[in-house]
């Protein structure tokens, strides 16, 4: 099956921390590890500048003047932006960590941090982002292909996925066995499925049925 990632850009590490020195130092560290980094002094500044199509992860300070890290997480969630978030904090605050994890944070690390730890966590987050973007891209592709099916082909596809035989399908739809065969072949071709199992996987992944 030929799946392509929609976005081939290099992922960026976005740093949101109101402490200038921390932002600067983290940026330098991440860049020294060969990753592009961009710093924002507030949650609002990040929201204004961020394009959700850009791959990457978010290093987010929990406590900031104005909009807090948790507030930003909430805002992103409402906007359906799924960028992985690594929370950074000076306090091992249990209540905040619980809220952050519930909100879908990838990670939670305490200042000051060891460079290997933070770079590993960033790498993990970026992998997760890539994976999730890939998954979303694949689903988008399946949905786009599904859009191209005729109503009859969609009916046939649903029945095929429901493990009906061609004979049963012909009987249900009141069409000839040969016609079912032709529809089925076109569904497999248009959807780019190699096998029945592949088609079923696609349907489940994209929640078509």
């Amino acid at each position: 099956m030929a799946r392509t990632t929609v976005n081939e850009q290099k992922p960026t590490v976005f740093i949101v921390d109101d402490e200038c020195a921390v932002r600067d130092a983290l940026g330098l560290l991440i860049e020294s590890a060969g990753l592009p980094a961009e710093g924002f002094k507030s949650a609002c500044a990040f929201l204004e500048a961020y394009d959700p199509d850009r791959p990457g992860c978010l290093l987010l300070d929990v406590r900031m003047k104005g909009m807090s890290g948790l507030d930003l997480q909430e805002t992103l969630r409402k906007k359906n932006v799924a960028i992985p978030i690594i929370f950074i904090t000076g306090h091992g605050d249990v209540a905040i960590s619980v809220r952050a994890f519930r909100g879908g944070a990838v990670d939670f690390i305490e200042k000051p941090f060891d460079d290997h730890t933070i770079l590993n966590r960033i790498e993990e987050a970026l992998a997760r982002d890539a994976q999730s973007r890939e998954k979303h891209a694949a689903i988008d592709q399946i949905l786009r292909r599904y859009e191209r099916l005729t109503p009859r082909e969609r009916e046939v596809m649903k029945l095929v996925i429901g493990s009906r035989s061609n004979k049963q399908i012909a009987k249900i739809l009141g069409i000839s066995h040969r016609t079912v065969d032709a529809h089925r072949a076109r569904v497999m071709e248009k959807m780019g499925a190699d096998s029945l199992a592949d088609l079923i996987a696609m349907a489940l992944e994209s929640e078509i049925v």
Binding site: A21, A25, L28, L29, E31, S32, K111, P112, F113, D115
Partner: peptide, 11 residues
Amino acid sequence: PLTAIASYLQA
């Protein structure tokens, strides 16, 4: 500042 120092030195 400790975080910043650690990160600067690691960098």
